[in-house]
């Protein structure tokens, strides 16, 4: 899932500028799950915005509305009636949702409330960690199910750098060295030869280096 964090209120209200009728749109997808984009966070943000402006002596009108997934146009249409007279919409979705919202309503001023951080999963009750860089060229079958692109700070493909201190990454002792884990896992599986083979320079064009990503269904053309 996509993991995102709330922007500071100051940044959001700066982006709102002179807008006085604001609708906060939550997303019941990924960002709700990581506790930043759900209906509750929308209400907290709406309240924060109202209080911020009232402290400044400027009353604003805010409301909240929930969207099942902002990254699907069909889920956005039902909120159209709520947009009448609205100066700006604050989106609690990831960057995808924010853009879909902007695309769905051409004249709507859309402000992102979150910083989209990474694709990851829950590793503790309240802790999420990155697991995928979406490189478009998965090699997890070669690395024992541990992604070096994501989990090695230098995205190395042929083994650890020389900086690994003990079992930890040189840049943060709380991050385990992905390569030492890959090595141990392959060794346990008796598949070290997978690592010993030279891994050629990666085709980054399938990921974000390759321009706008696109994917069509093969068995259905519009």
């Amino acid at each position: 899932m996509i993991v995102a964090e709330r922007k500071p209120l100051a940044e959001i209200v700066a982006a709102l500028g002179k807008c006085r009728k604001v609708l906060v749109v939550s997303c019941s997808g990924c960002t709700a799950v990581c506790f930043t984009g759900g209906a509750k966070q929308a209400e907290v943000l709406a309240s924060s915005i109202r209080m911020h402006y009232r402290v400044a002596g400027v009353p604003v009108n805010t409301g909240t509305v929930a969207v099942t997934r902002q990254c699907d146009r069909e889920f956005l249409q039902p909120i159209e009636h709520r947009l009448t007279g609205v100066d700006a919409v604050v989106s609690l979705a990831c960057g995808v949702g924010v853009q879909f919202l902007a695309e769905a309503f051409a004249d709507l001023w859309v402000v992102p409330a979150l910083n989209t951080r990474f694709a990851g999963g829950r590793v503790g009750t309240t802790l999420w960690e990155e697991r995928c860089r979406m490189c478009g060229d998965c090699i997890l079958h070669l690395t024992g199910g541990i992604c070096p692109v994501t989990r090695c700070s230098k995205s190395l493909l042929n083994g650890p750098c020389g900086g690994a201190a003990g079992e930890h990454c040189e840049i943060d002792s709380s991050i385990p060295c992905a390569w030492i884990h890959i090595y141990e896992r392959l060794k346990r599986a008796g598949r070290l030869e997978l690592w010993q083979k030279l891994q050629q320079p990666k085709d980054w064009s399938r990921g974000n280096a390759g321009g706008l990503g696109r994917l069509a269904r093969e068995d259905y053309s519009e």
């Binding site: 006085r20 009728k21 609708l23 709406a46 109202r50 209080m51 009232r54 402290v55 002596g57 400027v58 009353p59 604003v60 009108n61 805010t62 409301g63 909240t64 609205v86």
Partner: peptide, 13 residues
Amino acid sequence: LPLNGCPEEGEGK
């Protein structure tokens, strides 16, 4: 409370 000087405009729910 600093809000209490400024009337709110309600929630556009």
